[in-house]
């Protein structure tokens, strides 16, 4: 009897393990059935009282679980006309998303403003793990300004 129960338990354990292994193959967007979700993040820069004329931001996904699928323009008219540029080489070779933009409009934003929105595809049942570096922020004259960059999940349109 014990022998039978032990065999049964062993088989059941193996059964469960095999199911888990089969599901584990799902990770990554390379398989069409992988859990995939599309999300967006708003990227803000707070330049305080200074006028924001240009910026460069470096974003890296440590988990390598996401893919950028679009870069949207910002909210203020200075950064709304055209989406920021991204560096294709950095994206292709290092998986870094390097965004940069500048504006030549008269009225530049001060305080906190949304400068970009990132559209991402997250692949597999894992969490993205992003790092965000504000590489540079400058005013209309090209002079560096003290600023901070933040990101929040985008809501609505």
């Amino acid at each position: 009897m014990i022998q039978r129960i032990a065999t049964f338990v062993l088989i059941c354990g193996t059964l469960a393990l095999s199911t888990v292994l089969a599901r584990a193959d799902d990770h990554g967007c390379e398989q069409d059935n992988a859990p995939v979700r599309f999300i967006a993040y708003d990227i803000f820069i707070d330049a305080g009282k200074a006028e924001l004329g240009a910026y460069q931001i470096d974003i890296h996904d440590n988990a390598r679980a996401s893919k950028v699928v679009g870069v949207e323009a910002g909210a203020h008219e200075a950064f709304a006309d055209k989406p920021p540029y991204y560096d294709p080489k950095a994206l292709n070779n290092e998986g870094r998303i390097v965004l940069a933009a500048y504006s030549t409009v008269e009225e530049l934003p001060t305080g906190k403003t949304r400068v970009a929105r990132l559209h991402m595809q997250v692949c597999g049942d894992v969490d993205a793990d992003f790092e965000l570096d504000l590489i540079v922020a400058a005013d209309a004259d090209g002079q560096p300004i003290t600023a901070t960059a933040t990101a929040t999940p985008a809501e609505g349109k």
């Binding site: 933009a101 500048y102 997250v122 793990d129 540079v136 922020a137 560096p144």
Partner: peptide
């Protein structure tokens, strides 16, 4: 593993200027 972003501080003044010009 939490999905998160780490933001780093801004660089020094001269470096910012150079980077800005690049940008």
């Amino acid at each position: 593993k939490k999905e998160a972003v780490r933001t780093r501080g801004v660089p020094g003044r001269q470096e910012v200027k150079n980077l800005f010009m690049d940008s």
